[in-house]
Amino acid sequence: MNLREQLTYNEASLPSVKQAAQELYTNYGAMLLGYITEVVKDRPAAEGYLADVFSGLSTGDIYHIAGTADGSTYVRLQQYTRKKLVSFISTTDDCANVEIKGNRLIDLMNPEQQLVFCGLHYHGKTIGKLAGELNKTDEEIRQILKQSFNIIRSNRK
């Protein structure tokens, strides 16, 4: 039974919500912990946030994340996590001072690309805010972000 079939909105479905959460955890727990660790820069705290994120998944959340075959389940889970992290913490201003080490993909980006990618992806900043901080236009920020993705893709293939 896939996640979509498991998820029905009734009281009897509560155990299946747990199963669905476990399936998400099994498939994406490690990827998500890597992401959260980069956001909070603290491994034990990241593990705590990971537990909080999965513990707080409601039926509706799981249905939104895993209830459709369209698009990436991981990306939706990551976006959900980012929103939760914003409510947990408010560290959205330390990209310039903190390096993302130990990842060859990020290391391949130049400092400006790292700053933009870090600000948007890990710290949930808006393009407008980042553009203001870096004294650039929204269009320029989008293009720098696009360059960052080009670097990731060129190493994926």
Binding site: Y28, A30, M31, L32, L33, G34, Y35, T37, E38, R43, A46, Y74, Q78, N103, R104, L105, I152, N155, R156
Partner: peptide
């Protein structure tokens, strides 16, 4: 792909 590279 990026997330897999940074997985913990």
């Amino acid at each position: 792909f990026l997330a897999l590279n940074m997985a913990v």
